[in-house]
Simulated assay, not measured.
Amino acid sequence: MEDTIDKKTNQAAELLKALAHPIRMQIVMHLTEQASINVGSLQNLLNIEQSLLSHHLIKMNDQGILHHTRKGKEIYYSIADPTVIEITKLMVGSRLIPKG
């Protein structure tokens, strides 16, 4: 049982680390408003450089938070783990995120 608790708390900590940046939390918030968003649109919404956005998207994708699909030359991101929506609601406030 102790191993299960250790494993679950370690997984939770890794998930929180992956979300622990304002840009990453903003990405989640935008993805709760739209089912999927391409990289160019996210870049415009966040008003950041493409290389910085890519850094955050890769980190979130590697942690299983996001899912990506390619449509032609564009990559679209969506939330892969709905738990992150609930976590973000708790941290930021449910009034900022539409209920879905």
Rank of each mutant, 00 (worst) to 15 (best):
M1C: 08
M1F: 03
M1N: 12
E2W: 05
D3Q: 15
T4R: 15
T4K: 15
I5H: 09
I5T: 13
D6C: 06
D6Q: 12
D6W: 05
D6V: 09
K7V: 04
K8I: 10
T9D: 06
T9N: 07
N10H: 09
N10F: 05
Q11L: 13
A13Q: 14
A13F: 13
A13W: 07
E14P: 02
L15S: 03
L16S: 11
K17Q: 13
K17H: 11
A18H: 04
A20K: 08
A20H: 14
H21F: 05
H21I: 01
H21G: 12
P22Q: 05
P22Y: 03
P22V: 07
P22A: 08
P22R: 11
I23W: 01
I23L: 15
R24Y: 02
R24E: 07
M25S: 10
M25Q: 15
Q26H: 08
I27V: 14
I27P: 06
M29H: 01
H30F: 12
L31T: 05
L31P: 03
T32V: 14
T32K: 07
Q34M: 08
A35R: 10
A35N: 12
I37C: 11
G40H: 06
G40I: 04
L42E: 05
L42R: 03
L42P: 06
L42H: 01
Q43V: 03
Q43H: 03
Q43N: 06
N44W: 00
N44L: 10
N44T: 14
N44D: 13
L45K: 15
L45F: 12
L45I: 08
L46P: 05
N47I: 06
N47W: 00
I48C: 13
I48H: 02
I48N: 03
E49S: 09
E49A: 12
Q50Y: 09
Q50F: 07
S51F: 04
S51L: 06
L53K: 02
L53P: 03
H55F: 12
L57Y: 03
L57E: 02
L57K: 02
I58E: 08
K59F: 04
K59W: 00
M60N: 01
Q63L: 06
G64I: 03
G64A: 02
I65L: 07
L66Q: 00
R70W: 00
R70L: 06
K71S: 09
K73D: 08
K73A: 10
K73M: 06
E74W: 04
I75H: 06
I75S: 10
Y77C: 06
Y77S: 05
Y77K: 04
S78K: 09
S78A: 13
I79L: 10
I79Y: 01
I79W: 01
A80M: 04
D81I: 01
P82L: 08
T83P: 00
T83Q: 10
V84I: 13
V84W: 04
E86W: 05
E86M: 12
E86Y: 09
I87S: 03
T88Y: 01
T88S: 12
K89C: 11
K89M: 08
K89S: 07
L90V: 12
M91A: 14
V92E: 11
V92A: 15
V92S: 11
V92I: 15
G93D: 04
G93N: 05
S94H: 12
R95D: 15
L96K: 11
I97R: 09
P98T: 07
